[in-house]
Amino acid sequence: MAPHEIELIEKARSGDTGAFEALVYQYDKQVLTIAARYVNSSDDAKDIYQEVFLRVYKGLKKFQLRSEFSTWIFRIATNVCLSYHSRRKRRAHVSLDQEQEVSDGEASHGVEIVSEEHSPHQQTVNAELSARVEEAMDALSPQQKIIFTLKHYQGYKLNEIALMLKCSEGTVKKQLFTAVRRLREALKEFA
């Protein structure tokens, strides 16, 4: 771990919120990007972001300096993503209307869709495909979904993903293969 990072961790542990911010701002955009890709909703991504860094803040005192700080952050991020579905289900019990709003408002605020110009027909196809991909992704198990997101969209290496999820590389390979197979089945009419 870099000496400046250790220094920031020590300061943050003693309650220096400025040091804490400087520490986490090195990784927070990646965390938000993973969350946004995982949940496809800016509001939910911000919720995940906040929970991740509150857990980091609370857990900092117990953090072992011999581990990589970034790995620890991304491990927390993946855990929060994995528990996101169950929390969302609990929320659905609280307010179905609210859940509908979340669903309707997905990818509408703050998340920018960047695309090259397409014909109206292509845009329609893309919109339909996006919806189907999202549906297929939601049908994966949380672990398969996070592994596919981290590998396919974020480009992490298998051993990095294994470290984040605290599992073996073999498990990551197996789950990735299953995720790809299930997505291909669900999207076979497009590819």
Partner: peptide, 29 residues
């Protein structure tokens, strides 16, 4: 199959969203 997925519009986290997330985190902290 990968080409189809890669051809989809990419989701990008804007600076505005990141700032909002940071402000909300600051308040929570």
């Amino acid at each position: 199959f990968n080409a189809v997925l890669s051809g989809l519009p990419a989701v990008e986290v804007t600076g505005e969203l990141l700032n909002e997330a940071r402000q909300e985190l600051r308040a929570a902290l």
